[in-house]
Structures are given as C-alpha cells and as structure tokens.
Amino acid sequence: MIDKRIASMREAIAGIKSGDAVMIGGFGSSGIPFELIEALRLHGADNLTVISNNAGSHEIGIATLLRDRLVSKVVCSYPRSQGSIWFERMFEEGAIELELMPQGTFAERMRAAGAGLGGFFTPTGYGTKLADGKETREIDGVGYVLEYPLKAEFALIKAHKGDKWGNLAYNTAGRNFNPVMAMAAETTVAEVEHIVELGELDPESVATPGIFVDRIVAQEGLV
C-alpha cells in the first residue's frame, strides 16, 4: 500500500536536522508552503541552508526563519524585495551567507539534480561576475558556463490538490519552482489545500507526478 499522507505539519517535517539544506518552493507570495515553514520555525533545527528564489519579506514565511536566526546561508536569485528587512539586516551584519545565481540557472540546477545530470553549460552569466571562477566553454561560437546540480536534504513545496500517492496539481502561477524542487531533494514534503481520492485528479492536470513526492499533508489553518 502506498499512502504518503501525514497527519500534521509537525510530523510532515520530521527528520530535518540542524545544518540541512532545505528547498522551499514559491515565488514572491505565490505557491509558498507557509504552514510547513511555520512548522519548520517551531521544529528546532538551525544553521539551515535555505534554497528558495527569494529570501522572504515582512514577517511571514522565510523571513521568520531568518528573524529567528535559524538560517546561516541563502541560495537564491533574488534575495531583495519589498519588505525583505530581515535578509537585508542580516546581510549588512554579515550574519548570513548568500549564494546568488541567475534564476534560470537556479531552476535548471535543481532540474539537473532531479534528472540525474552531472551539470550543464548555460550561456546565461557568461562574461559576468556571476561566472567568476567557473569553467567555461565555447560551443558553436557561443560562450557557456558550466553549472552543477543543486541538491538538498528536504524540499518543502506547495500545491493546490494532491492524492495519497503524492500526485500534485497546482493553482494558476503557484506552480513556479515547486515541480523542480520536488525532483531535486532527498525527501519532498508537499503542503496542499485539499487531499483528494485517487483518480479525482485529471491525469493531464498532474504537474508533479507522485514519484517525486514523499509526504503529503493538508493545510491545518496554522498561518
């Protein structure tokens, strides 16, 4: 029997240890697993590496992990946004390490990790300071930068609906980074608004096949 359903947010994030790398889905406020993040904040692990496109804003989501000093490194493409006060404060203090990369490289590095690739050559960033120290190659007259896969111990993602096998369907643009993160982590935990019966999701609407998902948990109204 395959049943990936977990009863609570607290149990859903069990096993995350201090020092782990944790991917967190979402773009801005879209497609963010807010309840899993809140459970992670209360969980007790610190010295985390957070891999997410943005570094949180205001007093919600990833910003609360930074505020509570649980994060030592952020891997992202766009840490600065309106209200990203906690990231900016810690960056200025030198209290947080930043690994910055172009957004397409960020997504593709996770896709590569999930797809079993050892790396890829991208034209993005060639000739810029984000390619400093990286291997480059000219292919058919175009300059490329070698980028390696990006992995993590856990991915916390958000979908609209899912079933007990972990198949996921998203709401509008809430898909964003969630599918590639689901592929790239050792353990993927999906927060969904609704858990539905097997067969209820239109197979054509499944954007993340359940094989990439280890645990699925329904929102509890925590946040």
Binding site: S77, Y78, E88, L100, P102, G104, T124
Partner: peptide, 14 residues
C-alpha cells in the same frame, strides 16, 4: 546593498 539578479541575465542572453 545585497545583489539580486532574478531573470535579467537569462532574458538578456536569450
């Protein structure tokens, strides 16, 4: 001032 790149490099090259 923390740097942020987002999709600018991918768009400019692609």
């Amino acid at each position: 001032y923390p740097p942020a790149v987002g999709g600018a490099m991918d768009l400019s090259v692609g």
